[in-house]
Structure formats: structure tokens, C-alpha cells
Design a protein around this nucleic acid. Structure first.
Lengths: 348, 348
DNA sequence: TTGTAGGCGTTATCAG
DNA sequence: CTGATAACGCCTACAA
């Protein structure tokens, strides 16, 4: 009665139980678990049956000890934009769903002098299978060197390829901004304001380059006075918007290099009683939840951060994934962005 | 040359190295690690010195195997609102910062028939120290029963106390909504619209109760026709807003039971050319990032989800936290919300 | 108060 | 191809 366990009244079956039932040694079962090619089909069959019969699952803790590696992947980030992190997580989780893998989140402090020590401590203690590094810290070579030294696999995420194809995933910010601005230029708008992202990072540079290239390639002059500095936060977008709009020769369109700043620009427009898109068209970048919640809804670039998460995780732990891996090309680096036309700006 | 390691050229020092250096047995070192009281101060001292000298840190994987418990806490959720999850994570991480603990994220599918099996598989494989359960699945008793059966500690998060004080953290949605609506009523507004949350969950019920109680306690009649059904998503708020506002006797204020729906109501108002707060005042709940990005900025209730995360994590793993624990009362259950007055509605 | 022997469940070594 | 035997690093039981 109540003896619903197999063989022993104990907890889950171990490798020993499987070995006993299959009539082989532990090591042989271990070989099966680790997909060793050095096995006869006959024994492979026996072991497989025993495993199924016992409903055996290898104990991750024990494997972790023996392999000196935990069955988890860590997400390293220092990202002020929560939505981004969250969407990335979604992608990662969708990739490792149905596996024994766990996802751990590790925010770090980019400013702290103890950054490297903190990461080292985390990696040596948790010993993840690998780490996924989000921008902006994905740009730091010292962190990557640390991973190499500690023998922890890594994937760097960025707005441009930051490493060799096996170790990075990138979006094509520059190209898609080029496309976006070119469309506005083609429509006849000549004076387009721009709100820059923070200095010292890659994505703002890429997005700005796309902006500038569009003008160059269209043979249009670019007014430097229509470029305002921002820091990716709402407040900076608001300030930039006020600065660019509170003048007689205000631009007819403003591209902010992320949605949060674009929302700020929208606020500035509303304050000044400007109709969007009638008096002013506003463009953003990221396509976070905010983009479809603001008024008017934001025409923006969909930054495929979730897809990037999925690809990055797949690259990092492809050996743990089943056939799911075959759905995607492990050599792929760039996940293309695309433009989402909503109410705040039109291309026709 | 290059021999910058202590004692052995190997990797990190183990319990054996410490024991050897301190001149005691492994077990004695183990006792020190586990804060056993059965030690003389003299040996305690010796061991501590050896540990410091070697810069020894116990191997979490080995402990996990021996203790059958991983040094991580898992966040279980099925929450459509990303911001909430993210802010909760922040709180948890701030609590376990500077510890050896990791945070793992585990989204589940509330609808799936395999929900329980999925959670069971996750918990038995990962063996976290404990789980933090976010609403709405925190309301499910079967999940909690599962945790008990698997001997996994848990904390349930909710809009009201869902368990005994040691196992839950709650907000006071009902009270704060009561306060919010009472303030509007006191101001002279009599007809206030309401957008409900999805049926079958606790937080929508609490928020609706607060809404109704405010009318009752002020002796005001409540028009049922001013109550619209929503599902916590933007689109449902938009629909509800259109429904409530596209009539001659439209309400002068609308309270949506979360910010996302309130943004939808704002859109409906804009569509109809209504000035907010001139023609219509709008109130939300949550105080997510959206609330301060929409136009006009949303007067809302700050749902202290981050603080709840911090408290929940502290309760769950108080023994691993240093003096940080003393900063907060482990018996606390309710983390009070508070009203944030912004532009979309005024109380004066 | 401390130490010894054995176990946690898996993988690595190396001989057969 | 397969299997004893010894790690992996820590903890529990029991003995001293």
C-alpha cells in the first residue's frame, strides 16, 4: 500500500538502479547518458529500456560535482532598460524549454570597481555552463577574457558583431536605421531631428551612423543643430524634445534612438500643443511595450531582442537541445530588425 | 614562476586544504562552515584563520549533492505583465546580493494541463532552496501542496495574504483603492467608471472590492453600467474606454485596475478628443514604467512589487543573509502600496 | 568537543 | 567495447 515507488522505497532511481536492472556497470549507463559512441547497439538498447522502465533521470547535482559544471546558463547584464532584459529572457527560456537547463539572472554594476571580481566570484561559485552577456557590458573585453580564463563559454549580444560568429549574436541597427531614415527622406522630409543615445557605447554609435549614412547616401545635408544628446532615459528624451521643438525652424520629424526617449519627445510635443503626426512625426527604436501604449502609438524599429535571446541560448547550449537546434542555423550571427509603422510617423 | 596559487598548483582550495592547514579534521571545518555551536572557540579561531589564509570558499556543487539542495532560489510565474516580473526580480536580487545564492527564473504555463508535472520536474531536478511564487499562480493551492510534498520552501505573493505569515507576502490593494476612490469621491466626482481585471483571480477581486467599498462607505450610489470588463491588457482597456466614453452621460473619471488598461482608456479618450484631465480623469494601478511614459502621465497606485520581492526573498533565505536580515521584520506580510499623483487625475 | 568511516550520484582512469 | 576503482568536495552517523 502506498508503495508507488519502483524497486526501492527510496526517492528517485539512481544510476546504480539502472545498471542493476540492465545488467551492466554504472560506467556503461554513464556512457549512454553522455551519448558515448563507444557502445554496442545491444547494450545501448538494454540501458535505454532500463532507463525508461525506471523513469530514471540523472541527478544534475551529482553531474555538476563530477563535471565541475552546473546545468544552468547565466544572464549577465547591466541594462537600465528592463523591457530589454525581460524580452531577452523570454527568448532564452523558449530555447531551453523542455530541457534540464535553468536560467539564472545576474545583474552587475558596470560602474563598480569590483565588477570583474564580482563576476569572477559568481562564475567560480555557480559554474554555469555558459554566460549570455547583454549590452552594454557585452562590449567589455576584460569580461570576455575573464570568461576564457575561467573556461566558461560565452555569447556576446550587441548591435554589431562583437566577436567571432560562434560567440556572438548581433542585430543590424545601423542598416535598419538607414532604411528608416531613408524612407522619411524619400517622403520629402529634409529636416529630421535626432536624439542620440549615451556616449561610450556601441548601439548609440551604430544607430547614429545609420542616421548619418542615410543623409549621405541620399545626398542630403544634415544639420548638426538638429542633433541632441540623450542617455536612453525618458527624461533625456523630454529635454531633447523641448530643445529641438521650441524653436521657429523646428524639424518636422524626430528620430530618437530608443522608444523611451521617443516617448519623452512625444511629451514635449504634447506640451507644445503640436499634433503628432500632423505637425511632427516621431520615430523610435526597440519596439518595447511602451511603443504601443503611448499616444499616438509609436512608429519604431522592432529590435529582435527576444529572437536574439533564443539564438544566443541555442548557440550556447546546442548540444543539450534536441532536434530544436536544427530549426536554426548556429552560424547565424545577425538577427535582422524591421520597421513597425504605427501612428506617430507614416512612410507613404 | 606563475605559481600564484596557494599550496597546490590545482584550482580552488578544498575543505581538505583548510583542514590540513588548521591541523584539524575535515569534519571540524565542515562544522565551522555550517555554524555549528559544538566547537571550542580555539578551534573555531584556527579554522577561520586557515580559511581566510587560503581564501577558501565551500564548493556549492558538492554541498548541493550532499545536502540534496541547490544554492539557488527559483522564481515561478505565469505573468502576462513583464514589468511586474522584472521589478520583482530586482527586489529579490537586491536581497540576495553579496550572497552565494543565485536566482533562477521559471515561467510556467497556467493553461497547460502539464503545469503541475512541469513544476514537479523542475523542482526535483533543480532542487532549489525555495521558490517564490508570483500571482496569479500563487493562488493555486495545488502548486503549494506540491512544494510541501517535495519539501521545497515557498513564499506566495499576492494582493492579499494567501498563506500563513511565514509563507506569504502581500500588498493591500483593497485598502489603497478604497483610499484612491474615496479621494475622488470626496472631491465631488460622483460618477466614476471602472475597468475590471480578468475573472478568476484575486487581485482584480481585491481592487474591485476597494472600488465598491469606497462608494458604500461614502454613502454614494454606484452605477453598475459604469463598470466594464477588462483582462489587464492594453486592448481591453481601449475597448472598455470606448464603451464607457462613447455615451452622452459618460463618467468624468475612470479607474482601470491596472496601468496597461488605463493606457488603453487614455487612448480612447484621445480618440474622442477628450482632454485629460480636463474632460476626463484617469486612474491606474501598478505604477509600472508605462505610467510615467504615457501622456498625460498617469495618476496611479504604486504597487510595491520590488519591495515585495525583497521581503519575500529575505523571508525565504533569511539564514543565508547576514545582518541585512535585521533590517527587516520577518513577520511582516503586508507591504503597503501608496498613491502617486501625476497628471491624469488630481485630488485637490 | 572532535575525528573516523561511509555516502550523496555521477564521471574519469585505465586495465581487461 | 566494458567494468572495477578512484575521484569530485562536502555532509551525516556514530564513535571516541
Amino acid at each position: 500500500m502506498g508503495d508507488d515507488d519502483n524497486s526501492r522505497g527510496q526517492g528517485a532511481p539512481t544510476i546504480n538502479d539502472v545498471a542493476a536492472l540492465a545488467g551492466v556497470s554504472k560506467k556503461t549507463v554513464s556512457r549512454f547518458i553522455n551519448k558515448s559512441p563507444l557502445m554496442s547497439d545491444a547494450t545501448r538498447e538494454k540501458v535505454e529500456q532500463a532507463i525508461q522502465q525506471l523513469d530514471y533521470v540523472p541527478n544534475p547535482q551529482a553531474r555538476a560535482l563530477a563535471l565541475r559544471r552546473n546545468f544552468m546558463i547565466a544572464l549577465l547584464h547591466d541594462n537600465p532598460n528592463g523591457q530589454t532584459v525581460l524580452n531577452f529572457q523570454k527568448g532564452v527560456l523558449s530555447a531551453i524549454k523542455d530541457t534540464e537547463l535553468a536560467l539564472a539572472v545576474r545583474p552587475v554594476d558596470r560602474i563598480s570597481p569590483g565588477l570583474l571580481a564580482d563576476i569572477e566570484s559568481y562564475l567560480t561559485k555557480q559554474r554555469p555552463l555558459g554566460v549570455l552577456i547583454l549590452p552594454p557590458i557585452s562590449e567589455r573585453d576584460d569580461i570576455v577574457e575573464l570568461c576564457k580564463r575561467l573556461d566558461v563559454a560565452y555569447i556576446r549580444i550587441g548591435s554589431t558583431a562583437l566577436d567571432d560568429p560562434a560567440n556572438c549574436v548581433a542585430s543590424n541597427d545601423r542598416e535598419v536605421v538607414h532604411e528608416l531614415i531613408s524612407a522619411m527622406l524619400a517622403k520629402g522630409l529634409k529636416r529630421i531631428g535626432f536624439v542620440r543615445g549615451p556616449e561610450g557605447f556601441r548601439s548609440p554609435i551604430e544607430r547614429e551612423s545609420g542616421f548619418r549614412d542615410a543623409f549621405t547616401d541620399c545626398g542630403m545635408p544634415l544639420e548638426e543643430s538638429l542633433i541632441a544628446q540623450g542617455n536612453y532615459r525618458f527624461g533625456s528624451g523630454l529635454d531633447a524634445g523641448r530643445e529641438l521643438l521650441d524653436r521657429n525652424d523646428r524639424p518636422r520629424a524626430i528620430f530618437a534612438s530608443n522608444d523611451e526617449m521617443a516617448s519623452g519627445v512625444l511629451h514635449a510635443a504634447h506640451e507644445l500643443g503640436l499634433a503628432v503626426p500632423g505637425d511632427l512625426e516621431v520615430l523610435g527604436f526597440d519596439d518595447t511595450a511602451t511603443a504601443s501604449h503611448v499616444w499616438p502609438t509609436l512608429t519604431t524599429v522592432h529590435w529582435p531582442i527576444e529572437e536574439m535571446g533564443r539564438l544566443a541560448a541555442t548557440k550556447l547550449v546546442s548540444e543539450f537541445l534536441g532536434n530544436a537546434t536544427h530549426d536554426c542555423n548556429l552560424n547565424q550571427v545577425v538577427v535582422p530588425s524591421h520597421i513597425v509603422e504605427r501612428a506617430s510617423a507614416k512612410f507613404h
